[in-house]
Design a protein around this nucleic acid. Structure first.
Length: 581
DNA sequence: ATGAATGACCG
DNA sequence: CGGTCA
DNA sequence: TCAT
């Protein structure tokens, strides 16, 4: 219970609709309201002062249920957002504000400016966390109540009382054994060997939880293969079938998408100011949050998620509670940060260079072109700045791959070209085209000769490759970065040619398929097991001398076969589409 | 208090 | 080698 | 910023 002085709901009698605490989220909401002094009225009566309507419900459903034509005018009807906002502003807000309107409500909507109620403490959010403006505000204004809350439909889902969001549906919370879900004994045994693995891999581990949760219910929106069988010994792919293929496409489906979006921006912000670890921390927290099927609002819930500590948990709560008012932030945004962001999107420009330019007074791309000292690549990056920001539709990625494949096959039909990167993870669009090139039996040198020596010049004269940004110098070098364009289009695309010796194909596929968080996780797992995974293979017995200097490369365990690498690591195979964190 | 992935390219 | 990128 |  909060201190008496803060009990802003004292004297209120709340009637919820639906008026039960069977739903977990609503239950939480009710508890919270009580903490702030409200009384929960379980039976409809004259005493009711407020009706709190679930976001998915309409006014008509309320009246129909209560068998009334309209509710008495003195009774305040608001949606569920109202309570949160009141709590966050330590004030009873104007219930007529449009954010709190219940669909179908007869009254004329009066837009009330809630701005003046913003307590000073909240403005600290703005200064400490520069966020991108506009974009979000629009979304939020449009859909004040759009958060997809799993209502009673999912009731069965997280039944085990009010305990934490992560506890497996079947087990005791905090049970260390959560690793053994649904995997065969061999794998379980390997996983168990090291308790410390419990927290490591963002995905390897948490998804086990998620998977088993989803497994014990039929969790709705899956599109593909098979139906949910609860048989634990079924192939482990079943465990993942409920996973989204998020990749920028359907983030709106997530009940926490608004929060995630903001956290994402914070992560990007820290990235910009070169705080690599905070950036990473945020990304891991986001990955965690993405896996929640329920809206996470309060700190105490958020902190239970892996990789969400008290600082981020507090921010999650703040974001969840104050959304819809963020339009007030618009004005303030460090203009330097804007420029920085623009410069950093130039190919060949990182935070360091961008900061220097800003420092030196450059403010536009034209400024740079006119008087800054630019590397060759930066010139290309600026000249084709707009093109290179564009996402590449999946079909076009495919097309670029096909051009290269055809050219190679003309040289030798044995060549294999795999489109990697986000494309391989199933993304509908990509930032660049990653092509993994190999040939049975080929080593680095022979690939280099044919690709760099023959293929590239050939494609250049064909007008397909239009710029070389980075090519490997050594004759065993394995990559070529540049730009390409289809004959049918004038848009330049970033393309990477990755030359992979036949024996390293498996490791390379993992590496070039990502995503990066997934790669980190799996590599970390490897190192915890005394192995080392890089783009060339999985090794054991890596010796390191003083100062972390590598003495031995270690003994190659596997490089050629992607699945084997997973196997040796004791990680259940997951197809590329499921390597998104 | 401390570590947090790794390798390659560029200049 | 440090900075940057993937 | 998180986890150890």
């Amino acid at each position: 219970m909060v201190p008496e002085a803060q009990r802003i709901f004292t004297g209120l009698s709340l009637y919820f609709f639906p008026n039960s605490d069977a739903n977990k989220v609503r239950k939480r909401r009710i508890e919270k309201a009580k903490e702030y002094g409200a009384v929960w009225t379980k039976v409809w009566s004259n005493n009711v002062t407020h009706v709190i309507v679930d976001n998915k419900m309409t006014y008509q459903e309320v009246t129909k249920f209560l068998k009334l034509d309209t509710l008495p005018p003195e009774i305040i009807v608001v949606n569920e957002t109202y309570l949160f906002d009141c709590i966050s502003y330590h004030n009873l807000l104007d219930p007529k504000a449009r954010y709190y309107e219940v669909p179908g409500m007869p009254t004329s909507s009066t837009v009330v400016e809630v701005a003046k109620l913003l307590p000073s403490e909240l403005s600290s959010l703005n200064s400490s966390l520069p966020l991108k403006p506009a974009k979000n505000d629009i979304q939020i204004l449009d859909t004040p109540s759009a958060s997809v809350e799993s209502g009673d439909v999912h009731q069965g889902q997280n039944d085990p009382a009010q305990d934490n969001l992560l506890s497996p549906a079947n087990g005791t919370p905090n049970e260390p054994e959560n690793i053994s879900f649904g995997y065969n004994d061999e794998l379980s045994a390997i996983m168990k060997e090291s308790q410390s693995l419990k927290h490591i891999p963002v995905d390897l581990e948490d998804e086990d939880d998620t998977a088993s949760l989803a497994n014990s219910e039929s969790d709705s929106d899956d599109d593909s293969k098979g139906n949910p069988s609860t048989k634990p010994k079924k192939s482990w792919q079943e465990n993942f079938q409920c996973m989204d293929k998020h990749d920028g496409a359907n983030t709106d489906a997530n009940p926490n998408s608004e929060t995630i979006e903001i956290l994402q921006q914070m992560s990007e912000f820290y990235d910009r100011i070169r705080d690599q670890w905070r950036t990473l921390a945020y990304r891991k927290a986001i990955a965690s949050l993405k896996k929640q099927s329920q809206r996470v609002i309060f700190q105490e819930d958020a902190v239970k998620l892996p990789f969400v500590g008290h600082r981020i948990a507090a921010k999650i709560e703040e974001i969840a509670l104050t959304r819809g008012l963020r339009r007030l932030d618009n004005a303030k945004l460090d203009p330097h940060d804007q420029v920085l962001q623009m410069f950093m999107k130039i190919y060949g420009v990182g935070i360091s260079q961008a900061s220097q330019w800003v420092q030196q007074g450059y403010r536009t791309l034209k400024d740079l072109e006119k008087s800054a000292k630019l590397s060759t690549n930066q010139k290309i990056g600026i000249a084709h700045y707009d093109d290179l920001q564009l996402r590449i539709p999946r079909a076009e990625v495919e097309h670029h791959g096909a051009v290269v494949r055809d050219a190679l096959r003309q040289m030798d039909p044995e060549f294999q070209v795999t489109v990697g990167g986000s494309y391989r993870r199933g993304a509908l669009s990509s930032g660049d085209v990653d092509l993994i090139i190999t040939r049975p039996g080929a080593d680095a040198r022979s690939l280099n000769i044919s690709a760099i020596g023959t293929l590239v010049p050939k494609l250049e004269s064909a007008g397909f490759l239009v710029a070389a940004l980075a090519k490997t110098s050594k004759d065993t070098g394995s990559k070529w970065h540049g730009c390409s364009k289809l004959p049918t289009s004038d848009v330049w695309r970033r393309i990477d040619l990755l030359l992979v010796p036949w024996d390293e194909m498996g490791a390379a596929l993992i590496y070039f398929t990502g995503n990066d968080i997934f790669n980190r996780s799996i590599r970390l797992l490897a190192s915890k097991k005394g192995m080392r995974l890089n783009q060339r293979g999985l090794f054991k017995d890596v010796m390191r001398g003083p100062g972390r200097v590598k003495v031995t490369d270690g003994i190659l365990l596997e490089g050629r076969n992607e699945k084997r690498i997973f196997e040796i690591l004791g990680v259940p195979w997951r197809p590329p589409e499921h390597r998104i964190c």
